[in-house]
Amino acid sequence: MCSPSTPSTAIVVCDQAQTAALLDFKQLVEAIAQAASDLEAGTVLSPERMVVPLGEGGVLLSMPATAQDIGIHKLVNVQRGNTQRNLPTINGMVTVCDAPTGKIICLLDGPEVTGRRTAAVTLLAIRTCLGQAPKAILLFGTGAQARYHLQAVNALYPQAKIWVRGVSPQAAVEFCERNRHLHEHLEGIGNTVPEVDVVIAATTSNEPVYDEPGKVGRLVVGVGAFTPDMAEIGKATLDASDIYVDEPEGARHEAGDLLQAGVDWGRVKPLAYALKAGVDRSRPVVFKSVGTAAWDLAAARVALAGLAANTHDRVSQEPAPCK
């Protein structure tokens, strides 16, 4: 477990495993819900992320966010070609500082924060837009983000059945076998759409992987596409559905699904609106997530609370000094 064991002036550095241990999915969902309200109220500031080309086909993403209590800066590199190199697609870190003093408090593993908070945003969308525990989920993708979604669903909905579609039926079956320890109720599937109440697309596709007619009682969530040339959800689904996004300004520039479908932005509502006003569940619903540093700030709040609790537990267990 990651906890300060040196003077308070030291920076706590958390590796991937330590970062994961600090970021409980149930706590993340609540922290992100609060951050969504804070973002709308202007008490969390999260400017549009800076995207800089890196290498061949890669990008460097700079994502800061500040609030009255803390500030964070996430710096991550995304190399989609790393899949062929058997290397992680995302590398990076999140720097967390105390807002009043500017003092750096800790460093968190960037890919772990990204994976967990993205999956937690999906959980919040399910809770808000579906309004009940999902019984069956169709998951597109067999990469890192798909694995984080398995963990997230298992944390809140352990009885949900998850059907997995990959680039091939064999890829889906192999993914399920490798990751059954993360969620018991897994099954690979071919090019069909089973009866489900949630669809989650977590791919790096440049063309839609899901373009079914809108269906009442089925929530469609897109989390993989984050550039204008990427798309996971097709026009048929989008045209027939009410659309919510996690961060409207970012979505206008980065939600390739919506941009390629020529969606009327006047009918796109933010997550914060859904949290306050609810959604019309008599209509098909699509939730599109492009990510914002506000969610990383929410994750940092959860991590800091965990660090503080760990420190308190460690101190309380130390024997009293001899007199």
Rank of each mutant, 00 (worst) to 15 (best):
F226L: 08
L60F: 10
M50C: 04
A293T: 10
H73E: 12
N91V: 15
A125D: 06
V199G: 08
N91A: 15
L139E: 01
A309C: 08
S8A: 15
I32F: 01
I32E: 01
D246Y: 04
E195I: 07
E318C: 10
E48T: 11
N91M: 12
P319D: 07
V193S: 08
A201D: 05
A172S: 11
D296V: 04
S168H: 10
D313N: 02
A20V: 06
N77T: 14
P248T: 15
G81S: 13
V193K: 10
V263G: 04
T122C: 07
R85N: 13
C2N: 03
A144V: 14
R127T: 04
C176G: 10
A99Y: 01
H312W: 12
P4E: 07
I137F: 00
G291S: 12
V221F: 04
L39Y: 09
L108N: 09
A155Y: 07
V193E: 02
C97E: 02
L139C: 08
C14N: 02
E207F: 08
A251H: 09
F226Q: 04
Q151E: 09
S282C: 06
D15T: 02
S62N: 08
A255R: 08
V268D: 02
D257M: 11
E48I: 10
R180A: 14
T89M: 08
L61E: 07
V51A: 13
A201T: 14
G291R: 09
D24Q: 07
C97I: 12
A225Q: 00
L297W: 02
A202V: 09
Q79E: 11
P319K: 07
R218D: 05
P284N: 09
M1K: 10
N82K: 06
P319C: 11
V52S: 12
A160H: 05
D38H: 00
T292A: 10
P213E: 08
T203V: 10
I104F: 03
T101E: 05
A17W: 13
V279A: 14
G58R: 04
E30L: 03
T114F: 03
V94W: 05
A36F: 00
Q159E: 11
K235D: 01
D229K: 13
L23I: 12
G188Q: 01
I72E: 04
L54K: 03
I11Q: 04
S289N: 03
E249H: 10
L60H: 14
V223E: 00
A133K: 11
C14E: 04
L87I: 01
D280P: 00
P111R: 04
H253T: 12
V302I: 06
G278A: 15
E232Q: 14
A272H: 01
S168K: 09
G58V: 10
D242F: 02
A305V: 02
L182W: 08
G58L: 10
F25R: 08
V167T: 14
Q18N: 01
Q84A: 14
T95A: 00
L304Q: 03
G256W: 05
V173F: 05
V153T: 14
T43G: 11
K26M: 06
V216M: 08
A251N: 14
